[in-house]
Structures are given as structure tokens and as C-alpha cells.
């Protein structure tokens, strides 16, 4: 039985009804979805410690995702710092918009693609300034 944890950056309180946050690092909540044999078996919410960080939000957020044991993370976009940490933690990054439920469906269908990398073209900016 194969089990995988998918983290979705959520724009509100989290959960399948919530929508995918455009911003990974500063989203308020993570929805952590456990998938076994192709179906959702558990949905939990975890506050994003990066949402209130003065700087290095993406780093804190990414660290939390790795520590949750997630191997996939879905968000609208990822900052350069978050990207570095997630890559170091071996987490697959995927880009999606709209409802979390649809994003998870698309993920299970294998139709999500990785985010466009190098957004803003600069590393270490953080503060969401890369948008």
C-alpha cells in the first residue's frame, strides 16, 4: 500500500473547499492531504509558520512542509527561497489555481505541471517581492 502526503498552500482556513493560495510562503494555512492507492484518506490543516515571519517566510514555510513529511506541495507560485529549501528537502513542487478539491483531482490525474522557475530572476529576495 503506497501512501503519500500532499501539501496544498491554502488561501483561507484550509480544507478541500478552500482555494489554492497564489503565494506559497505567506499563505495562512496548509492543507495536508494523505493519499493512499490513488484516493484521499485524510485531510488535515496545519498553520503556516511563515505567514507571519518578518523575513524568510518561504524558508519557514518550506521547512514546515518538509517536516510534515510531505513529498508534494501545490501552490500558485513559489518564491526563490522556498524553492531552494523545497528542492533541498526533495519535495516536488506543482502549480495550480482554483479550489483545493479540483487541484487534488488534477494531481491524481497527473495533469499538474511544475511552477515556472526563476520568477523575478533573482534569488534571495523573499518578502513576496518576486511577484
Amino acid at each position: 500500500m503506497s501512501s503519500i502526503k500532499v501539501c496544498v498552500a491554502s488561501s483561507g482556513a484550509g480544507g478541500l473547499e478552500d482555494s489554492v493560495s497564489m503565494q506559497f510562503g505567506r499563505c495562512p494555512m496548509f492543507t495536508v492531504i494523505t493519499i493512499e492507492n490513488g484516493s484521499v484518506v485524510d485531510v488535515r490543516t496545519v498553520p503556516n509558520p511563515g505567514s507571519s515571519a518578518s523575513g524568510g517566510a518561504g524558508i519557514q514555510a518550506a521547512q514546515a512542509v518538509v517536516n510534515e513529511g510531505c513529498s508534494v506541495v501545490i501552490a500558485g507560485a513559489f518564491g526563490p527561497n522556498a524553492e531552494q529549501v523545497l528542492r533541498a528537502g526533495g519535495v516536488e513542487m506543482l502549480s495550480a489555481q482554483g479550489s483545493i478539491e479540483n487541484a487534488v483531482k488534477s494531481y491524481l490525474e497527473g495533469s499538474l505541471s511544475p511552477p515556472v522557475s526563476g520568477r523575478g530572476g533573482r534569488k534571495g529576495r523573499g518578502f513576496g517581492r518576486h511577484m
Partner: peptide, 13 residues
């Protein structure tokens, strides 16, 4: 600065 990262089973970097 949140410049250090440590994963659950790893070392700080």
C-alpha cells in the same frame, strides 16, 4: 533572518 534550515531528520544548513 530565518536563514537557517533544519529538516526533521537532518542537520542545520
Amino acid at each position: 533572518e530565518n536563514a537557517l534550515v533544519m529538516f526533521k531528520n537532518g542537520y542545520p544548513f
